[in-house]
Design a protein around this nucleic acid. Structure first.
Length: 901
RNA sequence: GCGGACGUGGCGGAAUUGGUAGACGCGCCAGGUUUAGGACCUGGUACCCGAAAAGGUGUGUGGGUUCGAUUCCCACCGUCCGCACCA
């Protein structure tokens, strides 16, 4: 923003040309496009027609262009070259693996070499040379950054495709279309974004992004540090993840997710003796099950019948005992094992050790099922006091679990416990205690420190037609990537583009990729190094996010046929910068990205991931794609409902005395996003027709800060139209169309105002405050209007230049009428005489005890004594002192005077 | 429940490091111009009291720091957004 390059769009222009028809403008735009092309290659061919300064300004401004995510679509869906390079990048990801030791992605070829040389052991320890082709392929495929795997996915029958976690709403429906989504096991393509979880999290600190977006990404990645602990059972070890291994002595039961794979192996044929009846009931109101197997089945089907929404609303803890016990590794105690839906298979290991004294959820579950609650920390006195409680370690008196720092009790197994023993008792911080217990767990082989993420790998395949086909073919051992010479893989011509949608509620339906219907496309003969053979193509396509993961790079070098982007071009625009030229140093990436908050954990996360892979592979020079991010606000609009609660056409509602009427009937005013459903849409087309594109643009920019959402008010648009008309009339004779500008010098006051405006508008645009920049232009124009005299050229030219930034069409036309035959864009930003910014005399407010009582006019360089004397001489000041001597006079040079009585 | 953002005229919003609160626009009021309306031009417009000058009050509420607070600190109220049994 801050420059026509950032605003102009060809369809806005086309509309303008249609309504106004002005050749000058068309030429101006042609030159502007040429300028854009020239500057794009400026590092190679500096435009000779401009000065050094001009280039520097252009460069600075061009770096600020906001790239719209949605703009990608026009390229991605029409330009097969864009498909080619998306597929090319995909093959680089396919041919890479993440080396956890180095923390970076590396080529698969290096991994293969390590296996071949024996430097890296195979999973089952056999030599690489002993492995069959299929076994080798399978091992390698398991390491790839993008892999095909059978896994639980979000299947959306209504859309006929699977969806990424990020595309599913909190209540388990599709982000698009709001159809039900079901968890199903299917073979799909997945990107190993979890490998980058740490870097995606830590590198947020390098970015100049709005804090809410960073918070959303941090939460989405959800890093938790703690430990994995193994509890022995009859069916083998059950691994749990916990952030509080220090509370292990308080673990009095264990809970598995209902779908945990070890449940079936653990379930015995009959209930152990003395099993409480409540433990055997799948629901609080239900009946006792006669066997653990029956109880598990009953609970699972009861849980499955609950929608995600019901599960969220019903926070009552439920679960069922599965008849088995596990051994707490610190004290050897047999703890009962439950399944409960408050433990999620998708997080950690899908199993928890329950510490009811220190975790509210476990506490509630323990109370519900009458399980032991053993205190292992002494809560501080304040904790008891807040709960009106006498300090006690008898947890039956506790209203809730204690979470926090407190001295450890009952956490000692050094006498009679397993070998070595550990004693946590006494004063430790949680961090210390965690460290101690982790070391002990490791020493006895029952666990170790661990980190878990909420982030899942990214489901990357879709059963649609529109999308980049995978550059992948299949043979009997698995997937193989096509050589670059086979790219792009183009979509086949088909009669029917639509994915096969199913009954939205039919969870058992299966996806049918549209590409699978085209047999002659599916089977392809190609030479992958073993001579020409027939392979089957991958039938899925990439999600819409694939192209937007890297399109900003293609914008740098859109016609390059040899590379997705020339490395020099990439380094020039996106590389890390040391600062200088008034700019801050950055890690690189797009200087300014303007986009909506809705992309927080979708596009903005995916693109960072791809970019980091490209960075690791040496294909880009910055570790982050978007250095600075601004979330523009939404334009919202009033909507109106009639007596029946139906929305009525907002544009036909009239206002009278603060009441609103539609068709003579009173209606209710509401407020929300513009859209069809609220019948409150205002299209840019309507605004162009009624007011023109520049007026519309000015209105949008002037109403408030870029980041703020605010209501649309068609009524207010006219203000900007008046401004443009007044400005036009100040410079142009309406009858002749000729400029009325004169070559005489302007008066001193006007010159000073122009100087202040030039500097002020420049500062405002640097800070992305178009609203105040426009206000300053209006002020200058109002000054000229009031003067009611022909405007001096030295005033008109900078005014038109500044106007051209926010109103390019009118600005360009006025610039031409002022006699220029090149675009206003090419004129260097106006310079000002510094002397005009400094006034000889200044007006200072005079306060008495902080309240304004008058003003004085003094020389700008007046000394403190002079200013004080002038202030005390003001009648009203003297009156408020009431004859008394001031106790103190505070003079802030150039700003104000405060007399303390 | 947790996390984040934000509360300023009738409305959208200014006030960049604490220093004349309300720039600019809409709306409204008065006047000019006009056959009339619209458009245009001029002046006014935070609230209270006043003919005016002067005065009082005022940036969600209540405290605090300061010569001085929309701005900094504490507590509370409210609105919006995100996450939500994450072990």
């Amino acid at each position: 923003m801050g420059h026509p390059f950032g605003f102009i769009s060809t369809d806005v222009y086309a509309r303008f040309r249609r309504t106004k028809g002005d050749n000058v403008l068309r030429d101006g735009l042609r030159q502007l496009r040429a300028a854009r092309r020239a500057v794009r290659g400026a590092h190679r061919r500096p435009p000779r027609t401009t000065t050094e300064d001009n280039i520097a300004i252009m460069r600075r401004q061009l770096r600020r262009i906001g790239l719209g995510h949605d703009a990608r679509r026009s390229v991605a869906t029409t330009d097969v070259e864009f498909y080619r390079w998306t597929q090319w990048i995909f093959t680089r990801i396919f041919r890479s693996w993440f080396d956890p030791d180095a923390g970076v992605a590396r080529p698969i070829s290096e991994l293969t070499a390590e296996f071949e040389s024996g430097e890296r052991a195979t999973p089952d320890g056999r030599a690489w040379s002993e492995l069959a082709e299929g076994e080798r392929r399978s091992i390698i495929d398991d390491h790839r950054l993008v892999y095909s795997a059978e896994m639980p996915v979000n299947w959306c029958p209504g859309l006929g495709t699977v969806l990424a976690n990020e595309e599913v709403t909190a209540d388990g429906r599709s982000d698009i279309g709001n159809y039900p989504v079901f968890r199903r096991n299917m073979r799909q393509w997945v990107m190993r974004i979890t490998s980058y979880a740490d870097r995606l999290l830590d590198d947020l600190d390098l970015l100049d992004w709005p804090e809410p977006i960073k918070v959303m990404q941090r939460n989405w990645i959800g890093r938790s540090t703690g430990a994995e602990v193994r509890f022995a059972t009859e069916a083998g070890d059950v691994e749990v993840f916990t952030t509080r291994p220090d509370t292990l002595f308080g673990a009095t039961f264990m809970v598995l997710a209902p779908e945990h794979p070890m449940v079936d192996a653990l379930v015995p044929d009959a209930w152990p003796v003395d099993t409480p009846e409540r433990w055997t009931m799948a629901t609080a109101s239900g009946t006792a099950a006669s066997s653990p197997g029956e109880a598990v089945d009953a609970y699972r089907s009861a849980a499955a019948a609950k929608s995600d929404r019901e599960r969220q609303e019903d926070r009552q803890k439920s679960g069922v005992f599965i008849g088995a016990t596990a051994t707490n590794p610190v004290n050897g105690e047999q703890v009962p094992v439950f399944i409960a839906d408050y433990v999620l298979m998708g997080y950690g290991t899908g199993a928890i050790m329950a510490v009811p004294c220190g975790d509210q959820r476990d506490f509630e579950f323990a109370r519900e099922y009458g399980l032991a609650i053993t205190a292992i920390q002494q809560p501080p006195a304040a904790w008891y006091a807040e709960r009106d409680l006498e300090p006690t370690l008898d947890t039956s008196a506790w209203p809730e679990a204690f979470v926090g720092e407190g001295a450890y009790v009952g956490s000692d197994n050094t006498s009679g416990g397993p070998s070595g023993g550990i004693d946590l008792n006494g004063e430790h911080s949680i961090a210390e205690a965690v460290e101690l217990i982790n070391a002990w767990l490791e020493s006895v082989g029952r666990g170790e420190a661990a980190i878990t993420y909420r982030l899942r790998d990214w489901l990357f395949s879709r059963q649609r037609y529109w999308g980049e086909p995978f550059p992948i073919v299949w043979d009997e051992h698995g997937p193989r990537s096509l050589p670059d010479s086979e790219l792009p893989v183009e979509l086949p011509e088909v009669d029917d583009y639509s994915p096969q949608a199913h009954d939205p509620d039919d969870a058992a339906s299966n996806p049918v990729p549209p590409l699978g219907r085209v047999d002659e496309w599916v089977n392809v003969e190609v030479d992958l190094g073993d001579g020409p053979q027939t392979y089957r193509r991958e039938l899925n396509v990439m999600p819409q996010w694939a192209g937007s993961c890297w399109y900003e790079l293609r914008y740098l070098d859109p016609t390059n046929a040899d590379a997705f982007v020339d490395p020099d071009v990439e380094a020039y625009w996106m590389g890390p910068r040391q600062g200088g030229d008034g700019e801050a140093s950055t890690v690189g990436g797009v200087d300014l990205y303007v986009g909506g908050v809705e992309h927080a954990v979708l596009h903005l996360l995916y693109a960072r991931f791809w970019h980091k892979v490209l960075f690791d592979l040496g294909l880009v020079s910055s570790p982050e794609p978007f250095h600075r991010l601004i979330n523009q606000g939404y334009i919202q609009a009033y909507a109106f409902t009639d007596a029946r609660g139906q929305y009525v056409e907002a544009s036909e509602v009239t206002e009278a005395d603060g009441e609103f009427f539609f068709d003579g009937q009173p209606v209710n005013r509401e407020y929300g996003k513009m859209g069809k459903s609220l019948k409150n849409m205002v299209t840019p087309d309507d605004m162009y027709d009624a007011y023109g594109a520049d007026t519309f643009r000015l209105y949008e920019l002037s109403g408030g800060p870029l980041e703020a959402s605010r209501p649309w008010a068609t009524r207010d648009v006219v203000g900007m139209q008046r401004f443009l008309q007044r400005l036009w009339r100040n410079l142009i004779d309406e009858d002749t169309g000729e400029p009325t500008v004169v070559d005489e010098p302007a008066d001193d006051e006007t010159r000073r105002l122009v100087a202040r405006t030039v500097v002020g508008v420049g500062d405002d645009l640097d800070a992305l405050r178009a609203n105040t920049a426009i206000a300053k232009l209006i002020e200058l124009n109002n000054h000229l209007t009031k003067a009611a005299a022909p405007v001096a050229r030295e005033v008109a030219e900078p005014l038109v230049q500044l106007l051209g930034i926010v109103a390019p069409h009118v600005g360009e036309e006025l610039w031409a009428k002022l006699g220029h035959d090149t675009s206003v864009v090419w004129a260097p930003f106006p310079t000002v005489d510094e002397n005009l910014l400094v006034d000889d005399t200044i007006e200072l407010p005079v306060q008495v005890n902080g309240k304004l009582r008058g003003t004085i006019t003094v020389a700008a360089d007046a000394d403190q004594a002079t200013v004080t004397a002038a202030a005390l001489a003001v009648d009203n000041v003297a009156a408020h002192l009431d004859g008394a001597e001031p106790r103190k006079v505070i003079v802030v040079p150039g700003r104000m005077v405060n007399v303390v009585a």
